[in-house]
Design a protein around this nucleic acid. Structure first.
Lengths: 151, 151
DNA sequence: GCTAATCATTAGCCAGGCTAATGATTATGG
DNA sequence: CCATAATCATTAGCCTGGCTAATGATTAGC
């Protein structure tokens, strides 16, 4: 009764696999002296261009006060800078420092290498299948189970 | 050159999905006033029986000093107790408190519910496929890519 | 029996997560 | 047009969890 069959749980597989992936990614990031969250900040800014802090916090799915200190550390280490927005003086716009962009492209190369490693021996169909199954799980978790049960 | 196609990366899908799963699980755990790590401790102890701290740290893939404080908090909250091992007086054996077991079985029920929710609309084959693909990724990440490339 | 390894712990550091409250600014409704 | 409400970044204050290095007690092994 007490026992829970972890090894038969999707959650368990996903969690463990993600853990492995995180560890591998962190290993790649260590040489750059950057954390996963900092990496994410740069990624979003490169991807979407300069953003305000609320916008960035929203995309990272964290609270603004949490972001503040992440950005403090990144500003200290010259990865990003905060600029006052002239139209709306409450806002600050976060931008990636030019030097960070060079490092970013190196990190992208590492990422692609890691992705290649992770999907070794898998066909394009396998990868597609994996993606769609994970998407399904994500979608399932986003909705309320009761809505499904009554349907 | 700078852009990285996140939306085409296995790592991204796995990370995000795991994040959703973690959030959902944490929501379930909040009513019990328990964190994910604490949940894991109880899980391992229920699963394997009493363990020493090195053994437990090993299974949780964290360093012993990290575990010490997790256990401190759990002992404070009456989830576990540490008992001296008479055969080897350096060791302490970690045991789940009897009252925690009741709560554990409730949490197991929540977990199963969550699993059901996560796999809504998926066939047994789908789930099997997902498992084996994730296992493949795990295996790939555990080995060195160069070993594969030369093969 | 002495040295080396092992176990739990402490000290001291850091990242990252939250809520509540604050000050500055902008939006809005009357 | 002005007062009130909302918004944005920040601070304060708290917590969990991660690490390494060092310590003290004990056991293992030569």
């Amino acid at each position: 009764m007490l026992q829970y069959d972890f090894e038969e749980s999707v959650g368990y597989w996903i969690t463990i696999t993600s853990h492995f992936y995180q560890d591998a990614l962190n290993q790649e990031l260590i040489p750059y002296g950057i954390t996963f969250r900092q990496f994410q900040v740069i990624g979003w800014l490169v991807y979407e261009g300069p953003l305000s802090q609320v916008e960035l916090a929203d995309r990272m799915m964290i609270e603004p006060p949490t972001l503040v200190r992440i950005l403090d550390r990144m500003e200290r280490d010259q990865w990003i800078k905060r600029e006052n927005n002239l139209e709306d003086r409450r806002r600050k716009v976060v931008k990636v420092c030019p030097e960070a962009k060079t490092v970013w492209s190196q990190m992208v190369a590492c990422l692609k290498q890691l992705r290649k490693k992770a999907t070794q021996g898998m066909s394009a169909e396998d990868i597609d299948t994996l993606k769609s199954l994970l998407m399904q799980v994500q979608k399932n978790l986003g909705v309320n189970v009761s809505e499904y049960e009554t349907a």
